[in-house]
Structures are given as C-alpha cells and as structure tokens.
Simulated scan of single mutants.
Amino acid sequence: MTVRAAWLTNRGDTAGGQTRNDTRLAPLGTMTPAAELTTSPGAIPGSDPFALTATGPMTATLATGRAIIQGTEPQGAYPVAITADEPLVFADGDPANPRIDLVVLRVYDTAYDDSGQTLVAVEIIPGTPGAAPTAPSTPRGALALFRVQIAAGISAGTGGIGFAAATTDVRRYTAAVGGITPYSVAGAHRGQYRDNGTGLQRYTGTAWSGLATGLITWTKASLASGYGHNGNSNGDVRYRVIDLLGTRFVQWRGGMNVSYSGGNPRGSGRFLRSALPTTARPSSGLRTLPVACSSANSSIIAVKIDFHSNGTATLLSAAGDAPPWVSLHGVMYPL
C-alpha cells in the first residue's frame, strides 16, 4: 500500500490491520488542538507535501506526505501517510459547462460511517457543471488538498487541463501542540502560536496578536526636490510598517541629503514627494522625533521631523543650522 493510516484497522480486518511500518510512517503525537477532544487537521509541513504534478492532458500525481484527518469527535483524529506518488485521472469536461473538482485525502471507517470500508484513499470528488460552478464540499473525514477547474468540453483530445492555471492550492497545515502552525488556523487556546504568512502571532484566548507582523515591507521613499538618498553613505531612505504585540509601528532607515533655501530646508522641510499610504500614517496628530544630523554647518547634532496624519513629513532645523545630511536609522513611532 502507498496510502497508509495508523489507528484505523484491527488485526483480522479485511484491510489487514495496522503494521509496524504503518506506525513508523504515519505522524504520531498530540497535534494542534481544535477543542478538548479534536485536532486541527492538516498536512505535516516539510518541503512540499502532497504536491500535485501534471503527468498528461487529464492526469496528474499526488506526491508523498503526512497528515492528520479529524473525524467526528467520537472518532478522533487519523494519522495518515502517502509513501509513493498516487496517480490521479480527471474525467472529461461536461459538453456545455465547466466544473470544479476537489482532490482530497479521505478516511473511510465503517465503524462510524455507512461506507462498509476501512481504508484511507486519495480521491477526486467531481463538481457539478454550471455556468458559475462551485467546488464540492469537503466530505466528513477528508482533507481537501487542491481544486481543479475542468473547462467545458475538455479532454485529452482537445489539449487537456492547463494544470498551472486551473489548479488552486487549498492545502492547510498543522503542527505538534506547542509548535508554530504555518497556517491561519482558528485560535484554540491561550498561548497558541501561528505563522500567518507575514509574521508570527500569539493567541490571547480571545484574539490573535501580532508579535512582529510585516504590514508593509521595506519601501524606498520618494523624495522631493532638494532631498537625496544615501546621505553620509547611510543607504536609501526606506520605511516599513509592522505589527508589534498588537500595536502598529512605522520604522525608518537610511540617510538623506538635505539642501536649503533662505536658511531653511527646501520646500519648507516637506521632504516626501508624495504622501505615505494610509496604513503608514499616524492615526491623529503628530509624531515628532529627533534624527541625527551632520555637525557640518551646524551647531547641533540632531534635528527633528514631524510625521503628520495626512501622510506628509516635515524636517525642521533651528535658524542658522544647515546640516547637509540627516540619518533616519532608528526612527520608529506608533501609529
């Protein structure tokens, strides 16, 4: 067998019973809980479990991997594994309408369902053709892996499925209890962690709180006339927005060359060519911070910047001080 399960069959069953090899290959241990007696189902992370690869116009294979499939609460959770590529054959398209098929990993347990079977299998659940088709629901005791769009009239003779464009990855992942789930699972207990794709989050018992979630990655600022990047070789002026323990912050870095007009920074100190995006603006009022500056042409070694709620920013220096550059390294403020 290439699709195996642990804790599904007994010795003497038609399925042959659980072997030592089944137990070694299937994932064991307590996984991420969903409730008191249920487990958050999903694939076990590691490279690319259950990858779908096209092998022909209407055929593909499902690669090896391990997973947990949750049944009903009385059933418990089933640890399963695929140990060799599983072939998939998709039926030809409906003559008139497209459909969406669902690829699943499914457990049959006749002690809890009316299937009359005790096994785990890879299946394609065909969708219902329609002008605007929807994917079939995931059956009880199954883990959805991929949705595949089957165009109307498609077959091997007409070129088959364009798998790259037709396939939607719906795999979800799970981890051992106390581990970090690489998926946006629902919160089950205080102190639970997950990686939602942009950063690490902790569940407080009522909501997810970001530890260091990136909302806007490092972005090069567009500077107004009279201002330039890489002041004092400090690099380009960049900003990013992060969520840190539930509070949103803007961070800045880089150096900015500054020119003057009438003894004041050019353009009344408005050094940004365009306003910051809404998600990077103070919610109200100002955020005023000191920034290091050159001591050349200046009696001071710091000036200030006001960050405004309309997305603009103003560089301010005292009369008679005209430092040729300022450094934004270390500038950070809450929104």
Rank of each mutant, 00 (worst) to 15 (best):
K304T: 14
V120P: 03
Y193V: 00
L215R: 11
V89Q: 13
V80P: 07
T32K: 03
A207Y: 15
G12V: 10
D109V: 01
G162H: 10
I68T: 04
A144V: 01
G262F: 06
A318D: 15
G246M: 01
G246T: 00
T247K: 07
A176C: 15
T314M: 08
L315D: 01
T134E: 15
A313L: 02
L143P: 02
I150N: 00
A121S: 15
L62R: 08
S284K: 08
G162R: 03
T72R: 13
N230W: 08
A35W: 11
T9Q: 15
P282E: 05
L245S: 12
H329E: 14
G42F: 00
G16Q: 04
P323Q: 04
V250P: 03
Q70G: 03
M58S: 04
S259D: 14
R238M: 13
R273I: 02
R11A: 14
Y260P: 01
V122C: 12
L52R: 04
S155M: 10
L276Y: 00
S317A: 10
S309V: 12
L328Y: 10
F163P: 00
A186R: 03
Y78M: 06
P27Y: 09
T30F: 10
P129Y: 06
S295K: 15
G197H: 07
M31G: 10
N257F: 11
P129L: 11
A188I: 14
T138L: 09
P290L: 12
Y183E: 09
H308G: 07
V89H: 09
H329W: 12
G267V: 00
V185A: 10
T118H: 09
A77P: 09
P139W: 02
Q201S: 02
A26T: 13
N234E: 14
E73R: 12
Q251F: 10
N234F: 14
